[in-house]
């Protein structure tokens, strides 16, 4: 649906976007993630035709952007970082104006404006001046005008920036609802937002594409320091002995008894029985490059062979924040 090939944008000596290639399939929600000044806004402006790339090609719905800007502009609904609104217009007038410059036929305009207001829950402010609206509502009106003309592609630049936490949640839900069949690119420097909303994340730093994948895969691929958490019933030294033999396990630490979980601890007295019945919280550090799925399987069979029941097992994944920090911090070092 959207295809960038070798896109470079220079402003004088400054390279804002450097040889960026990216594909977004129809119906996909792609998150552009990166610190401030990474080139997210520039990339989006290039896609919308607001800025020409210095080099490289951009195609939206198989139409090259520079050759047919009007057709491309019709296919795109764009919400810049600050919603472009005229303070002296009411919400309805603002949307009617945008519907008109988007070239909607006269008969469809008011219907489309009403639909966009309904979708973005702005009907109750329809007759208020845009200049008097709160930031959250301005953002909604910005979204509403991006939706006019029912574009196939939505480009949203930092749609939740500057909003209060409740508004952020509302706008996120709104975006999720609106996405539907549409292809969406949204940028953010807030990681949980991207991992919640997007099927795929492209991380940009200093104009370079650093990584792109699903949020889970990104965390997994970089899962160098992955850990497994388990609850195992049995004597701590037996647990340790059994687990240390599992290939791929670098470190075993048998922690405290899981409080209140020692089966029958209250009923039986202290002694041998009790230690065998205790449940320990175990943390396993995996060796670098170990396949976490393979390790989990081997671990299960090792414990079963030793007669130690595995009661719970969870893989603690690196949060997207940690992945992001690794990528962004490591990249200058790699240069």
């Amino acid at each position: 649906m959207i295809e960038l090939a070798g896109v470079t944008k220079r402003f004088g000596a400054k390279v804002a976007v450097d040889d960026l290639s990216l594909r977004v399939e129809r119906g996909e929600i792609l998150g552009l993630l990166g610190p401030n000044g990474a080139g997210k806004t520039t990339t989006m402006r290039i896609i919308t035709g607001y800025l020409p790339p210095t080099a490289g090609t951009v195609r939206v719905a198989d139409v090259p952007v520079p050759q047919n800007p009007v057709a491309v502009k019709k296919a795109i609904g764009y919400l810049p970082e600050t919603p472009p609104l005229y303070a002296e217009l009411t919400v309805r007038e603002q949307l009617a104006f945008v519907a008109e410059i988007k070239g909607l036929p006269r008969a469809e305009r008011s219907r489309d404006v009403a639909r966009a207001m309904e979708e973005t829950v702005t009907l109750d402010v329809a007759d208020r001046l845009v200049g008097n609206l709160s930031r959250g509502y301005r953002q909604r009106v910005g979204l509403a005008q991006a939706l006019l003309g029912d574009p196939q592609v939505l480009i949203l630049d930092e749609p939740t920036v500057g909003l209060d936490p409740r508004q952020i949640i509302e706008i996120r839900e709104l975006i999720r609802d609106l996405a539907g069949e549409r292809t969406v690119i949204l940028s953010s420097h807030i990681l949980p937002e991207v991992s919640q909303l997007c099927q795929r994340v492209a991380i940009i730093n200093r104009g370079h594409l650093v990584a792109q994948d699903t949020p889970e895969n990104l965390a997994r691929a970089l899962g160098r320091a992955q850990r497994l958490e388990a609850e195992i019933k049995g004597r701590p030294e037996e647990i340790r002995a059994a687990l240390e033999k599992v290939p791929g396990v670098a470190e075993v630490s048998v922690g405290e008894e899981v409080p209140g979980r020692a089966a029958g601890a209250a009923a039986s007295g202290p002694g041998e029985e009790d230690a065998a019945q205790a449940i320990s919280a175990v943390t396993l550090g995996l060796a670098p490059g170990a396949d976490p799925f393979r390790v989990r399987e081997d671990m299960f069979f090792a414990l079963a062979a030793a007669g130690l029941p595995l009661l719970a097992l969870s893989a603690e994944q690196l949060s997207l924040e940690e992945v992001f920090m690794q990528l962004v911090v490591e990249e200058p070092a790699a240069n």
């Binding site: 607001y50 800007p69 019709k74 472009p84 410059i101 988007k102």
Partner: peptide, 14 residues
């Protein structure tokens, strides 16, 4: 100044 240029220039108007 107000950023509405971005709206006009990304709309299908000449």
């Amino acid at each position: 100044q107000k950023g509405t240029a971005e709206l006009l220039l990304t709309s299908p108007v000449t």
